[in-house]
Design a binder for these strands. Structure first.
Length: 508
DNA sequence: TTCCGACAGTGGGGTCGCAAT
DNA sequence: ATTGCGACCCCACTATCGGAA
């Protein structure tokens, strides 16, 4: 199949806003792709690469060679070129890689260049990724969508599952099984403002578990072979030897466990997320770092124990199996209750001990992997500050032509100025976006056609955030984590805004 | 007819590995 | 040694579609 056919389908998908129409376009193409190229077509049209990543990003794609007039390249050819680019490493690789990218894009028409460029940048912007692709595959292969979702959970790769569905229908999908050593798509959580709201959504007794601010891990063990994966199914076995040893010491030899790995201080309180994250990401100095920054692991679910798959069992039964093979010191602290007051006390205690909050879980839910079902609900405390808008950046995509991303500052009484604490684009409605663009252009200082538009510091905005972290980038040495706009405060003047001292007092 | 679940899009800060400077 | 890029860790929120209620 020619790449141009995918590019045309993508254009058609983007042009129709109705999901049903997007599904029709995708299914039509999937219906005529040859089996050997099905995985590539499914991957590209759901916004992923079979190679996962190839080392090409926004900067590499800035200037492309002039396009061809006639479309000639096939999916197989393009994919082979991407393999070659991915394999390009070592001294001199940047120039070689650049040449390969130029050669690849030089063989494409304008429409193909646009498609491949958006795909490689991870911004397909066609209003369809895995969710819509699952429906399209269901239509093209004439199988129920839940069968595809189930297989995807167990296999973790939509191209592989989708190609099997097109080739062999329901029978092929049912052949996918949980396989020890191959990661499962992890179950995700929704969020709620407080414990009472979370309990109300579950509607009955629930399990409340501490939410640790670490890295999600899925640990597999077959005999003495242990492998560990992250939320996105990256393998990190070599970076977490403490976890490997802990799993190897368990009294069961055939296991898949779900948990969180975290760096704790000697007094048992958690290190800031940055410390855990840095430790887990490090590959070159693991032996030394495990002395200075040891990792602890806490498990909260079991997907397989002693050769028995548990995904379809209710959470309470899975936990019973988990606690049978994992000692208490490796289990997340938990409480079963339906009482909002008791739950809130548990929440307060978790936060007092330095943790992120709670995850509230239904006792009856199966392990609904890969979807943010209502089975798990996270609850975290929320802080707010009144800050001053120092500048704004022009948006992209559906925010093109709108001033979108705000630069936020706290008041510095010593200098009479403001100290930047970070940016945010979250929490804005279309109406607010419209309003702030007009308002910002009125108080702009200097040119308004640059990427960043500097403003007179006049507007006060109420910002919600999860915490203050150390920052190597911002002038005050601190930055807000997960900042989002709650509302503008026209009743407040910049001299009423919160000060850097207030922010510093919140830093962990 | 209204409500709500699921999805896609729009980006945030921090850290590491790697190649180039 | 420092810098820039890509990848990945953590992630919140709104708009929209279409099926459920």
């Amino acid at each position: 199949m020619l790449l141009i056919e995918l590019a045309r389908t993508s254009t058609a998908v983007a042009a129709d806003s109705a999901r049903s129409a997007k599904i029709r376009h995708l299914a039509e193409l999937l219906g005529r792709v040859e089996p050997g190229e099905a995985e590539i077509a499914i991957a590209y049209l759901s916004g992923v690469l079979p190679q996962r990543q190839v080392g090409i990003g926004w900067q590499t794609l800035r200037d492309l060679p002039p396009p061809r007039q006639v479309a000639t390249v096939t999916l197989g050819w393009v994919n082979e070129r991407l393999d070659r680019i991915k394999a390009c490493t070592g001294p001199g690789s940047q120039a070689a890689r650049k040449a390969l990218v130029a050669e690849l894009f030089g063989a494409l028409t304008a429409q193909e260049q646009s498609f491949l460029s958006r795909l490689l940048r991870g911004e397909l912007r066609q209003g369809a990724l895995d969710g819509v692709m699952i429906e399209a595959l269901a239509k093209a292969a004439d199988v129920p969508a839940p069968e595809i979702r189930r297989a995807l959970t167990l296999r973790g790769s939509l191209p592989a599952v989708g190609a099997a569905a097109l080739r062999g229908g329901v029978d092929a999908l049912r052949a996918f099984r949980l396989e020890v050593g191959r990661p499962v798509a992890p179950m995700l959580a929704q969020s709620a403002p407080d414990v009472a709201a979370a309990l109300a959504r579950i509607g009955g007794p629930a399990v409340l578990e501490w939410k640790l601010d670490g890295v999600r891990v899925q640990a597999h063990r077959s005999e003495d072979r242990v492998s560990v994966f992250t939320r996105t199914l990256e393998e990190i076995t070599a970076q977490v030897p403490e976890l490997v040893e802990a799993v190897r010491a368990l009294p069961a030899t055939d296991l898949v466990l779900d948990g969180e790995v975290i760096a704790l201080r000697p007094d048992g309180r958690p290190e800031p997320f940055q410390v855990t994250s840095g430790r887990v990401a490090n590959k070159t100095d693991v032996a030394r770092l495990r002395e200075s920054t040891p990792l602890s692991v806490f498990f909260f679910d079991a997907l397989r124990v002693d050769g028995r798959d548990l995904l379809d069992l209710p959470a309470a039964d899975r936990y019973a199996e988990l606690s049978r093979v994992v000692p208490g010191r490796l289990l997340i602290p938990r409480l079963v209750t339906a009482d909002p007051e008791e739950g809130t006390r548990f929440f307060t205690e978790a936060v007092r001990q330095g943790h992120e909050g709670l995850v509230v879980k239904s006792l009856g839910s199966p392990y609904a992997a890969g979807r943010r079902g209502a089975g798990w609900i996270k609850v975290k405390p929320r802080h707010t500050l009144d800050l001053v808008v120092l500048a704004a950046e022009w948006g992209h995509g559906r925010r093109e032509g709108k001033l979108s991303n705000l630069h936020l500052g706290a008041r510095d009484p010593e200098t009479g100025g403001f100290v930047m604490l970070g940016k945010t684009f979250k929490g804005l409605t279309d109406e607010l976006l419209e309003w702030q663009t007009r308002r910002f252009l009125e108080i702009a200082e200097g040119p308004t056609d640059n990427w960043v538009v500097t403003l007179r510091p006049e507007l006060v905005v109420e910002i919600a955030f999860d915490g203050v972290q150390r920052s190597p980038r911002y002038p005050g040495g601190m930055a807000l984590r997960f900042a989002r706009v709650l509302r503008y405060r026209p009743d407040k003047r910049p001299e009423d805004a919160d000060t850097v001292a207030t922010v510093r007092s919140l830093m962990i």
